[in-house]
């Protein structure tokens, strides 16, 4: 009975291009490229890590080129300086809007986070596996936000920070602690789930389109492009914006007025 079911589902799977064999089916996990052994600890070099390195290298290269090209800061901007100033001013007003003028210096940090996440999300367009489609990346970025939330809370709030855990009632202390732990989890899972969901739908679509017979191959035109615009460009940009905005809101929440 069991075998029979598997056979039927594999026939259906072949029709829509889904291979039911778990060993060679749709694999959404990041491929492991190399297994290193560093002092007895096994370290996996996955696709995510390599893609992150590539993105980091490209971003650092762009930063160096911009710095070299803009050696002479002009009072009246022109050309490249216009573009750079536009990006910086946009980020600056974004941070000032979310965190008030007093904490505008957070723009330095969040510009980097913004660019890294944005380029990671958009890298799916070039055929990379987006690094943000791995919980490791989003959790690592969120760990910095988690640290910032509580660091700023303790520095600026002093004893009020610890008193905040006992409000409105001291009995609610465990629930307050759980809600503090839930913040980074929901932040990282939101970004991860959105990008991974888009990536899975795109790879399922490509699998289905690859097996089309004869005249139906016409569907290969246009449909992937339209879905890429939604899942990669639209969802990627919106999720980056939301991630940065929510991070700033959480940090601002811990700082007393």
């Amino acid at each position: 009975m069991g075998l029979h079911l598997l056979e039927v589902s594999s026939v259906v799977g072949h029709l829509i291009g889904w291979n039911n064999n778990p060993s060679e089916g749709l694999d959404v996990n990041a491929r492991i490229i190399e297994k290193l052994n560093i002092f007895g600890v096994e370290v996996w070099i996955t696709e995510t890590i390599v893609n992150t390195w590539i993105i980091m290298a490209v971003l650092i290269l762009i930063a160096f080129i911009l710095r070299l090209k803009m050696k002479n800061y002009k009072y009246k901007p022109s050309g490249l300086q216009n573009v750079v100033e536009l990006a910086i001013e946009y980020m600056d007003s974004f941070v000032r809007g979310a965190m008030t003028d007093q904490y505008a210096y957070f723009g330095n940090w969040f510009f980097g986070v913004f660019v890294l996440i944005l380029v990671s999300n958009l890298s799916g367009l070039l055929g990379f596996r987006p690094p943000t489609a791995d919980l490791g990346t989003t959790a690592a970025i969120t760990l910095t936000t988690f640290f910032l939330i509580h660091f700023m809370g303790i520095i600026k709030g002093k004893s009020g920070y610890f008193k905040g855990y006992l409000e409105p009632l001291p009995v609610l202390l465990p629930i307050n602690i759980i809600s503090e732990i839930a913040t980074p989890i929901s932040l990282s899972f939101r970004l991860f789930g959105n990008i991974l969901g888009g990536m899975i739908i795109m790879s399922m679509l490509y699998m289905a389109l690859g097996n089309l017979p004869g005249i139906f191959k016409i569907f290969n035109f246009g449909i992937p492009a339209a879905l890429h615009i939604y899942f990669d460009i639209f969802a990627g940009c919106i999720q980056t914006l939301i991630y940065v905005m929510l991070s700033m809101t959480f940090i601002k929440d811990k700082i007393p007025d």
């Binding site: 749709l26 809007g97 929901s186 939101r190 991860f192 789930g193 969901g197 919106i238």
Partner: peptide, 28 residues
């Protein structure tokens, strides 16, 4: 618009949790 996007993002969390659980059941 920006307030709505923020609210939508927070409202979306539960859906994303469900998606992650479904993905874990299917792929891992």
């Amino acid at each position: 618009t920006s307030t709505m996007l923020l609210g939508c993002a927070v409202a979306e969390s539960t859906g994303i949790y469900a998606l992650v659980i479904a993905l874990i059941l299917l792929f891992a």
